[in-house]
Computed example of a mutant assay.
Amino acid sequence: MAATAATRQPQKDLPLEESRAYLKNHFKDHSGAKYKDGWDKLWQAGDFLPWDRMVPSPALADTLNNHSHVVGSAKLVLPDGTTRRKQALVPGCGRGVDVMLLQSYGYDVVGLEISAKAVEACETYARETENEELYGCKDEKLGKGSRKFVVGDFYADEWLDKVGVKDGVFELIYDYTVSLFSELSFNGLLILLQFFCAMNPSMRPAWANRMSTLLAPNPQANLICLEFPTNKPPNAGGPPYSSPPKAYMEHLSHPGEDVPYTAEGEVKVNPLADSGPGALERVGHWHPTDTHAIGKDTEGKVNDYVSVWRHR
């Protein structure tokens, strides 16, 4: 899909270390409460957005296309036999590409971002691309869903009031932190990234607890995680921190609880431990047929996993 001039300006294509240095220098003037201004200025300038891929996650598309027997469709069947669209959430949605993809499959989708300028970029991109084939209706009987982009903090509740989601819960949540920004750590930026691989393991209990809270207690509701990086040595530090499948398993089985790690960064697994309150159960786990290049090895083999979770 080609980007229009209004959607994306020429980028500063810098090597990884130079990009990290550029961002660290940028956020020196936007620390603490000013961090939102820092994000806004990057989106306003539009020439240095190295996390912005301009296309939806191939792994999410693969999940929706080839694993519907696990995740179901965008139609929610209610106890009385009536139906409605499932409500979906993409936290940290960037330019909203995955929001647009889910909408094309019939979901009513909320894209959450910390930056007001990012939300403006989402709205512009959506207007310019909504009629492109990539985001065309995937099921004529179901039709396309709705989309809504909102500014807010994933861990706070204020944004829920803005989107009017029923009971404050979602039937689908897509979690993925990718690209250069997941490899940065300065001025508290990790707290803003909010998602699994970007967080120091000490922050993961809060992530798991929030996911458990926001996911509807319904067997038709799914949390979809794109697990990355799965093969990074645990003692290599981060971000991105080593995020093997067993780390997701331990945290989502014990939302809000401290999960022990070794001094080398390896998660400790206790197979005899009971699941915690609000625990999620893994109901699907596979390598997607495709993913972004950062999730592949030098020979093009996919290292990422997709995992799907529901309330027990």
Score class of each variant (00 low, 15 high):
Ala5Leu: 13
Thr7Gln: 12
Arg8Gly: 01
Arg8Val: 06
Asp13Trp: 09
Asp13Asn: 15
Arg20Met: 02
Tyr22Ser: 03
Asn25Lys: 13
Asn25Trp: 06
His26Glu: 03
Phe27Met: 09
Lys28Ala: 13
Asp29Gln: 15
Asp37Arg: 15
Asp47Asn: 15
Phe48Leu: 02
Ala61Asp: 11
Thr63Val: 11
Thr63Trp: 02
Leu64Trp: 07
Asn66Pro: 11
Ser68Gly: 14
Ser68His: 11
Gly72Phe: 03
Ala74Pro: 06
Val77Ser: 00
Pro79Ser: 01
Thr82Asn: 02
Thr82Phe: 00
Val90Gln: 05
Pro91Phe: 00
Gly92Phe: 03
Gly94Arg: 07
Arg95Asn: 11
Leu101Lys: 10
Leu101Phe: 01
Gln103Pro: 06
Gly106Pro: 04
Val109Trp: 07
Val119Asp: 01
Glu120Ile: 00
Ala121Ser: 14
Cys122Gln: 09
Cys122Pro: 08
Tyr125Cys: 06
Arg127Asp: 12
Tyr135Trp: 08
Lys138Pro: 03
Asp153Phe: 02
Phe154Ala: 00
Glu158Lys: 09
Trp159Tyr: 02
Lys162Met: 00
Lys166Cys: 03
Gly168Phe: 01
Val169Asn: 07
Tyr176Trp: 10
Leu180Thr: 15
Phe181Arg: 06
Phe181Val: 15
Ser182Phe: 01
Leu184Met: 09
Phe186Pro: 04
Gly188Thr: 12
Gly188Ala: 08
Leu189Ile: 15
Cys197His: 12
Pro201Asn: 06
Ala206Phe: 04
Ala206Ser: 10
Trp207His: 14
Met211Asn: 11
Ser212Pro: 07
Leu215Ser: 08
Gln220Ser: 09
Ala221Asn: 12
Asn231Thr: 13
Tyr241Asp: 03
Pro244Gln: 10
Tyr248Gln: 12
Met249Arg: 11
Met249His: 15
Leu252Pro: 07
Gly256Glu: 09
Asp258Trp: 09
Val259Ser: 02
Tyr261Pro: 04
Val269Asp: 08
Leu272Asp: 14
Ala273Val: 03
Glu281Asn: 15
Arg282Asp: 00
Gly284Lys: 12
Asp290Ile: 12
His292Ala: 06
Gly295Cys: 10
Asp297Pro: 08
Val302Arg: 08
Asn303Ile: 07
Arg310Phe: 02
Arg312Met: 06
